[in-house]
Design a protein around this nucleic acid. Sequence first.
DNA 1: TTCCGTTTAGGCGGTTCGGC
DNA 2: GCCGAACCGCCTAAACGGAA
Length: 341
Amino acid sequence: MSAVSRRPKTFKLRALHSQKKFGVAGRSCQEVLRKGCLLLQLPVPGSRLCLYEDGTELTGDYFWSVPDNTELVLLTKGQSWQGYVSDISSFLSVFHKPHAGLIQAARQLLSDERAPLRQKLLADLLHTVSENSSAETRAEDPPWFEGLESRFRSKSGYLRYSCESRIRSYLREVSCHAPAVGAEAREEYVRVVDAMGQKLRAAQYNGGYFDRGARAGGRLCTPEGWFSCQGPFDMDDCVSKHSINPYGNRESRVLFSTWNLDHVIEKKRTIVPTLAEAIEDRSGREIDWEYFYSLLFTSENLKLVHIACHKKTTHRLSCDPSRIYKRPTKPRGKRATRKRP
DNA sequence: TTCCGTTTAGGCGGTTCGGC
DNA sequence: GCCGAACCGCCTAAACGGAA
């Protein structure tokens, strides 16, 4: 059947970033394009049609295979359209620096909304855009400090404290294990714990992990205070892309306390018993306590995870046996020889 | 008195293990 | 298989004690 004898194909046509749609019919791509340009008052040279759904360009071959009333976008020279993705992207860009009127409009929508899904989306949206993460002091953002002791005067200071507090509790737990260590090894165990304690104090209990003002590499967040979930202990990444900015508002601050610093190699089941056993069996060798320090207190073995990514099952991971004891230093005067692999 | 570091008590939710 | 106890993984708020 020739194109001339066929019934015209119908489309819903719109210009880029316009919500207004027009019905257009035609027997060829060129005819629809010509009519569309006339209707939308756009130049025909350089213009083209593509599917609203996914941005596929409508060509002559493809013309008759699309269903009637397919939605099209008319693009002029230099314009592009990737489908729904483009809509979501422009929607998000509006919220990057939201206008007060937009927040007001969203609040109004939420107050009238009854559908749970839309309520949830609007509430989440408002929660996110009403953050005041750039504020740092109590004077700049009093609601953020609600319920906190008066001694906390800055957000970074409080979050630093919160991290220090977590790390200190790890040290305490290691220390509490001393009575379980054999009498002969106990003294050495206490000495090792003391050494780790000194190093921790010098590092200010690694409180910088939660401090957005800490140097890059020493913190787990962006300079704005955004933390991303590092995923369960047995995965490289967080599939759900969890993220949070506890500096934003009080609710985020409270919610952040449910995030965990998860030991990849477990503290109580593995690291502490391994350390105790290594000290008991050391027979003259020197414990590499800095290796245990890195496992217990540093991001080398700690993952910041959303509560849903915190797996409480046994991790079944063990310490690296080659790093438990310090390597003996080679005697002076003899040149070290290297074994070929 | 205030500040600050540390300890204690308690909460939640998970797994493991042994008795029935 | 079910149930409860014990244990483990985290966390916070409140209390405590020493220093400024």
